[in-house]
């Protein structure tokens, strides 16, 4: 009796494991959290009018703020660039060279109209203390 039950339990675990694996690998290939700029431009013209999320590095010196608080900037994947127009709350760490994630619509003339702007946080945590020491060391 116990053996039968154990078999039943193991069967459930194996089935559940298989299902989760399939779901996970399925999601991994098709439903990505964001597109790269490359992938976005490869989807033209289907992508026009579709709501998408794109990530890229903010090109230094391209952030422009106007009087209404709207901002314009460019993001790049190293080779391709797109122009982003955004109005809304700007994350604290948003600046040159930060990896940004924008959500909205890609339009013709390479302009991305975003209504959500997120900034990726650094994966390396450094302090001013350390920077100060390394500067001291180099000079």
């Amino acid at each position: 009796m116990l053996k039968g039950k154990l078999k039943f339990i193991f069967a459930i675990i194996i089935i559940a494991g298989a299902i989760s694996y399939l779901v996970f690998s399925g999601v991994k290939d098709t439903m990505v959290y964001y597109l790269t700029i490359d992938e976005l431009q490869a989807k033209v013209p289907d992508v026009y009018g579709e709501r998408v999320r794109v990530s890229g590095t903010v090109v230094p010196g391209t952030i422009e703020k106007d009087n209404n608080g709207d901002i314009k900037f460019k993001i790049t994947d190293g080779t391709n660039k797109i122009n982003v127009n955004y109005s809304g709350i700007i994350p604290d760490i948003f600046a040159d060279d930060v990896e940004a994630v924008v959500e909205g619509n890609y339009t013709q003339q390479n302009v991305f109209i975003a209504d959500i702007l997120l900034a990726k946080c650094p994966t390396k945590y450094e302090s001013d203390e350390k920077l100060y020491e390394s500067q001291k060391g180099s000079t």
Partner: peptide, 30 residues
């Protein structure tokens, strides 16, 4: 429990916004 390892793996093998600080691909801390 199957989901628990996925929490850790997902940030490492999939695109996302959560940072991977420790282990391979992580930047580390001071």
């Amino acid at each position: 429990f199957i989901d628990l390892p996925l929490v850790y793996i997902s940030a490492r093998v999939m695109r996302g916004i959560s940072p991977v600080v420790f282990g391979p691909g992580g930047g580390g801390i001071e």
